[in-house]
């Protein structure tokens, strides 16, 4: 694994800008990997040993993905939509897992860890988060994560066809509702609305 500064610069470039979230994410990922015994997670063989659960879709998540190499498409990055700045690092080989939460108090303490005298809040946070000790920046807990078979990386083992819309549903995401196998959209409603014919014509 590269050193912190190299990873931070790379992460900011990949994300699109430098921000406090990049610092938090890079540090969280480096700490998480160290805790679960991985020092080179972006490459084989370690790339297959790691799953990271992130609990927010904000800047730090991109930094975590950059440092660790986890990806949604590889199924090594899991998004749990909790709105919490936290990530859980799981070593699939050993079962060792740690959940790391970014402390809310670190936001107010950032200025204590700046030496440049900057007064800009965002710059204070970037600088402060770089210098802050782990125990101020994070809360860390060892945890157990039972990754179910349908969430594991590797070829899809499970397929079911939605009896309402005909879509093929992979990885046990189907629902048995009133004795019909349905996709989640047909069972619980979709996040989108179909357009009426007139609206479609306008677009066409």
């Amino acid at each position: 694994m590269d050193d912190f500064n190299t990873l931070l610069q790379g992460s900011a470039k990949a994300h699109g800008h430098m921000c406090p979230g990049q610092v938090v994410g890079v540090r969280m990922a480096m700490l998480g990997c160290r805790l679960i015994g991985l020092d080179n997670p972006r490459e084989l063989p370690q790339i297959k040993k790691l799953i990271v659960y992130v609990e927010i879709d904000r800047c730090a998540t991109d930094a975590i993905a950059y440092v660790t190499g986890v990806k949604l498409g590889r199924r090594s990055l899991k998004f749990i939509d909790n709105g919490i700045m936290a990530a859980t690092f799981v070593n699939l080989e050993t079962g060792v897992a740690f959940r790391i939460v970014s402390t809310e108090s670190s936001r107010d303490l950032a200025y204590l860890y700046t030496s440049s005298g900057c007064t800009d809040k965002r710059q204070q946070q970037i600088e402060g988060y770089i210098n802050m000790p782990d125990e101020v920046l994070f809360r860390v807990k060892p945890v157990r994560v039972n990754v179910p078979i349908h969430d594991m990386p590797g070829p899809s083992r499970f397929k079911a066809r939605c009896e309402a819309c005909g879509a093929m549903v992979r990885d046990k995401k189907e629902v048995l509702l009133n004795d019909r196998i349905l996709c989640r959209s047909c069972a619980y409603g979709s996040f989108y609305q179909e357009l009426e014919n007139e609206e479609r014509r306008k677009i066409a």
């Binding site: 699939l92 079962g95 039972n146 990754v147 179910p148 078979i149 349908h150 969430d151 594991m152 079911a160 046990k172 189907e174 629902v175 048995l176 196998i181």
Partner: peptide
């Protein structure tokens, strides 16, 4: 054995 809504561990 695992039908709709039933999963199992990977290990």
């Amino acid at each position: 054995l695992a039908g709709p809504g039933v999963s199992f561990g990977n290990d």
